[in-house]
Amino acid sequence: MSNHNKTDHHKDDELHITSYSEHFGTWVSLILLTFMTVFISVYGADLNTLTVATALFIASVKALVVAYYFMHLKYDPRIYRVMLLVVMALFVVFLIMLIFDYLTR
């Protein structure tokens, strides 16, 4: 297919191949993060809400790593990152508006 529209892609025509070692490195970091979050939860201090916040923070870091490296977002045209960001932002605003109702009742 000819490359006719300017907006979506300019530099993405050259194929980017992620190396095996990069995938392996990604995997190692994900496993480390998993053990970190498990250990914090099992042996960590009882911090209640803070524990949940930590767990969710680590989960988000993991999700970002998966999306960026395994799902190739890092090397994709910017529009993919922008769209995902918009979708996630939309979802977060849903969460905030929803919980606002319950917190102010």
Binding site: T37, V38, S41, V42, D46, T51, V52, A55, L56, I58, A59, K62, A63, V66
Partner: peptide, 11 residues
């Protein structure tokens, strides 16, 4: 990745 902490790790 999200289900795991939300159900297993909320101690």
């Amino acid at each position: 990745i999200y289900l795991f902490p939300l159900f297993y790790l909320i101690h």
